Deep mutational scan, measured.
Amino acid sequence: MLDDRARMEAAKKEKVEQILAEFQLQEEDLKKVMRRMQKEMDRGLRLETHEEASVKMLPTYVRSTPEGSEVGDFLSLDLGGTNFRVMLVKVGEGEEGQWSVKTKHQMYSIPEDAMTGTAEMLFDYISECISDFLDKHQMKHKKLPLGFTFSFPVRHEDIDKGILLNWTKGFKASGAEGNNVVGLLRDAIKRRGDFEMDVVAMVNDTVATMISCYYEDHQCEVGMIVGTGCNACYMEEMQNVELVEGDEGRMCVNTEWGAFGDSGELDEFLLEYDRLVDESSANPGQQLYEKLIGGKYMGELVRLVLLRLVDENLLFHGEASEQLRTRGAFETRFVSQVESDTGDRKQIYNILSTLGLRPSTTDCDIVRRACESVSTRAAHMCSAGLAGVINRMRESRSEDVMRITVGVDGSVYKLHPSFKERFHASVRRLTPSCEITFIESEEGSGRGAALVSAVACKKACMLGQ
């Protein structure tokens, strides 16, 4: 009897593995994704193909990295998701002549009506938060230079001027797309009239992360975010950046690689679950690469896999709870928690219980395998993109072996128990001629924006502006 049951459990697990095998990517698959990513990057950089390229390769006008001589107080704003952060950054000489960066910050959550109302409502709310922060720190009387981390696709015309191309991540505030974001912020500050600010720089969160990590390690020339969304930036040779005049030196390019796949480059790798996630998203047909990796989508992918296993009578005796059938019910943090389970399955059992399920031991094991399959594919897909960037940098610099540091931020990278190990191992397999160091950014977005502002202020002083 026991043997029969054991055989049935083994057969069930084997069927589960057959279904989950769809998520496995072979090294040849990853090399294919990497080569296609490089081709799209090239198209994004070139003037004649930029418009139709899915990977936009947006110039950021960040050319210099901090040298350690900029000092002063800077205000930093960070808008990239449902939370908005205001930070005071003091850049100065530390002990023994070292450079020191001290920060104080406060988080504000953005109400739904500000995210989806008008641009005026959104930026009025942001300036209200700045006003509140300055009151708390008794700094209303000071006109501070301000660095703005704005983590949406922007076409820069200068370091302090950028046109919002399109909202992502659930934002829909009308009247912002096609307009200068810094102008919208300046107008809102003017409307309030109770404080003055000098907006000197606007950067993407990947750029802010790279600059913040450069402060720790001067070989950091790539910034990457794996959180709600997924994106990367890197220092490109100016001669390859056709959208900006000049051939000397390097400029940081914001790849906006989340949109890779929007022209069909990933079609052969998309599964039924991916198509369902895409169809029910706020932007169907867009940001397809990001939807395979980002935390906004990972939990939902797992939920759809679990429903398939229920329908195949391989999980929960073929019956799903009402909660499990509800879109968004299986949160991405559950994926991390399930994979963090120590082996007694308590954590998995508790999560499934909150979803109205009474799982068996085998159910718990199957749910864990589903989570591992989805998150491992995410790590491997992400590795193909980064390997594409790094191999490109090595080739354009004609280096036999390139040493490089990548600064990384984002909740999936930082909080998932195995993502970074799987990701690092896969990147290294795909970049055999590179020695890569990964560092995690601390308060990256805010500190990085302030350091970019410090560079901009120093330049302005040198130019006598």
Rank of each mutant, 00 (worst) to 15 (best):
G264D: 09
L355N: 01
V241N: 03
R275G: 06
I404A: 08
Q323E: 08
R85C: 05
I348W: 02
V154G: 02
V244T: 05
R403V: 09
G68H: 10
F419C: 00
M197Y: 11
N283C: 08
R36M: 04
G223W: 00
R369F: 07
M381H: 03
L20K: 00
K90V: 10
C371Q: 03
M34T: 15
V89D: 02
C233G: 02
R191C: 04
S383R: 01
E120A: 04
K169H: 12
L309V: 02
W167G: 15
K39P: 00
R397F: 06
H380L: 11
L415W: 08
Q18P: 07
Q26I: 10
Y273T: 04
T149M: 12
D400F: 08
L270N: 03
L307Q: 05
E14C: 14
L309S: 00
D73A: 03
A21E: 14
M139N: 04
G407S: 04
Q24F: 07
I130K: 00
V89K: 02
R250G: 01
H424L: 03
K13M: 06
V89F: 07
I439Y: 07
I404W: 03
E221W: 02
T103H: 13
G385W: 03
I390R: 00
E22D: 15
G92M: 08
S411A: 10
C129A: 13
W167M: 11
K142A: 08
Y61P: 07
E242C: 06
Y108R: 02
A119I: 06
V203R: 05
G249T: 02
A232R: 01
G448F: 10
G356Y: 04
R63H: 08
G388R: 01
K291T: 01
T103S: 07
C457H: 06
K169V: 13
R63D: 08
F133W: 03
A379Q: 00
L134M: 09
D341A: 04
G295K: 11
K296G: 13
S321Y: 04
Y413I: 11
E300Y: 00
M107G: 14
S360N: 15
S398E: 14
G170N: 13
E48N: 08
L270A: 04
M37E: 01
A208H: 08
E339H: 01
H317E: 14
G175Q: 09
F334N: 01
D124G: 05
S373G: 13
Q286W: 07
V181S: 11
S64W: 13
M202P: 03
C230H: 00
M462W: 08
E442F: 10
L276G: 14
M393I: 04
G117E: 12
E421F: 10
M197E: 05
H105E: 12
V310N: 09
R422P: 12
K102W: 10
E14M: 15
R369E: 11
V89H: 06
E17C: 06
R392T: 12
I404E: 00
G193M: 06
S360K: 09
I211R: 01
E112A: 08
F171I: 15
I19L: 09
N283F: 11
L77Q: 01
F334M: 05
L386K: 00
V182P: 08
F171V: 15
Q138E: 07
N83F: 13
T405I: 02
M115S: 13
D78V: 14
E290M: 05
G81L: 02
V55T: 06
C129I: 05
P153D: 15
Q239I: 15
I293P: 00
Y215I: 06
R345F: 13
I439T: 07
E265G: 08
V71F: 05
M139S: 06
G229D: 11
C220L: 01
R303F: 01
C220H: 02
V455F: 05
G162M: 04
N166R: 15
T405H: 07
E9N: 11
T65C: 13
C129H: 04
S445C: 15
G72W: 03
F133C: 02
F334K: 15
G444Y: 06
V222P: 04
T361Y: 04
E70L: 02
T209K: 02
E96K: 15
L2K: 09
F316T: 05
K31N: 03
I439M: 13
L314T: 10
L301K: 08
T326I: 09
Q287A: 12
R250H: 11
R447Y: 10
L122V: 15
M37P: 00
N180S: 12
H141F: 07
A454E: 14
G81F: 04
R392N: 10
E312R: 13
T326G: 14
V33I: 13
A378F: 02
S340C: 09
K143N: 09
N179P: 12
T332P: 04
D311G: 05
L430C: 01
V86C: 09
E93S: 12
R7G: 14
L184T: 05
C129M: 04
L307N: 10
A259C: 14
F438R: 01
A119W: 05
I351V: 08
S64Q: 13
V33Q: 02
E245R: 10
L430G: 00
S69N: 14
E70W: 05
Q337S: 11
G249H: 01
S151A: 13
E242R: 01
E236V: 04
R369G: 08
E248I: 05
H424M: 09
M34E: 03
T354L: 12
F330V: 09
Y413S: 01
P284N: 05
I159P: 10
K296P: 05
R403K: 09
V305R: 02
R403A: 13
L165F: 11
G299I: 00
L270C: 05
G249Y: 03
V335S: 03
K459W: 07
G227Q: 00
S453G: 13
I159Y: 12
T82L: 10
Q24G: 13
E96G: 13
Q465K: 05
V367W: 01
T326S: 14
S340A: 07
E120L: 04
S131E: 15
T362N: 02
L30P: 00
C364D: 01
S127L: 04
E221N: 12
Q38H: 14
G328L: 12
G227A: 04
L271V: 05
G258P: 08
Q337G: 09
I19S: 04
H50I: 12
R368Q: 12
I110V: 09
F269I: 09
L415N: 11
Q239T: 12
G80E: 08
Q465S: 14
F133L: 04
Q38D: 04
E93Q: 07
R392I: 03
G229C: 05
V62W: 07
T431K: 00
C371N: 01
S127F: 07
V277K: 00
L386M: 10
L185S: 01
N350P: 02
G446C: 15
K459L: 05
L77Y: 04
F152L: 13
T228W: 14
V33H: 05
T103A: 12
R250I: 04
H424K: 15
T82M: 10
G229E: 15
E339Q: 03
R447F: 13
K172N: 14
E51I: 04
C461F: 12
V455W: 15
S212R: 04
N240F: 13
Y214Q: 01
E9Y: 08
S131C: 13
E339W: 02
Q287P: 00
L79E: 06
K172H: 06
L315C: 12
F419L: 03
W257E: 01
F171M: 12
V226R: 00
W257Q: 02
K161L: 07
G170H: 15
R36V: 08
C461W: 13
L270Q: 08
V181Y: 10
R46H: 07
Y273N: 01
E272K: 13
D42K: 07
Y234C: 11
F423E: 00
R186E: 13
I130W: 04
L304D: 03
E27G: 06
G407T: 02
K458G: 06
L324A: 02
E221F: 02
K142Q: 15
V55Y: 01
T342K: 12
D160I: 10
K172Y: 06
G356T: 09
S280M: 11
R192T: 05
L79P: 00
F330I: 13
G162V: 08
G72V: 03
C434W: 04
C371I: 07
I225R: 04
F133I: 03
Y289P: 02
P111W: 04
R333E: 12
Y61T: 02
F316Y: 02
G170E: 14
V154Y: 10
G446A: 15
V335C: 10
D132V: 09
S127A: 10
P66Y: 11
S426V: 08
G227F: 04
T60P: 03
A10Q: 10
F260H: 02
R43V: 08
R377S: 00
L271T: 05
V406T: 01
K104P: 12
